[in-house]
């Protein structure tokens, strides 16, 4: 029985070490993620121009960022949208699925001065989302919060188990000595 208890204490110490390693790895992964995210920054700003064809389908749009720089983006069938109306209802679709709705949504954003974030490559927009939700640094804060809080809980639980086991081990050893 004593050897079983000792074994449990040893494994509890080991799991503490393992959990510490997980947290360190998480921190490393965050650092890597942040550095890779900075490689190709998306453009955020307000919509200043929306261009459509004769059928009312979106062809191009322009965004002015916080420095006043205007960037024009072309779109393609795979361009993804995640935009909200004033009530906060989110519309998620692609250019190919709803070619005219995207123009209507972007005009709505232009009228409301609602900021958007555009992920693009060579002037072609790949995704157009709400500024607040596409804001990488804000999202990383929430992501960090989830991992910090939950791993702290795991760690606290393991500490609790370790302490409990130590008390038990001490008490069992004391009673064993009493019996002789």
């Amino acid at each position: 029985m004593i050897s079983n208890v000792t074994n449990t204490v040893t494994t509890t110490r080991t799991i503490r070490f393992v959990l510490a390693a997980f947290i360190a790895l998480s921190a490393f992964a965050f650092a890597t993620q942040i550095s890779s995210a900075e490689h190709e920054p998306p453009v955020s700003g307000i919509v200043v121009g929306v261009e459509t064809d004769d059928n009312g389908n979106l062809t191009r749009f322009a965004v002015s960022d916080s420095t006043g720089t205007v960037t024009t983006f072309t779109i393609f069938d795979g361009t993804e949208y995640g935009l909200e109306n004033q009530a906060g209802d989110r519309w998620v679709s692609t250019q190919g699925e709803e070619p005219s709705e995207s123009a209507r949504r972007l005009r709505d954003h232009r009228e409301r001065f609602a900021p958007i974030t555009v992920v693009f490559e060579n002037g072609t927009a790949f995704s157009v989302v709400e500024r607040e939700q596409g804001k990488l640094e804000t999202n990383l804060g929430y992501l960090f919060a989830v991992f910090a809080v939950t791993w702290a809980l795991f760690f606290a639980y393991v500490l609790y188990m370790g302490r409990k086991q130590r008390v038990l081990q001490h008490e069992i050893a004391r009673l064993k000595g009493k019996i002789g």
Partner: peptide
């Protein structure tokens, strides 16, 4: 993920 960004990793 393009719509939610990094928070989707949760």
């Amino acid at each position: 993920e393009t719509n939610q960004g990094a928070v989707q990793r949760i």
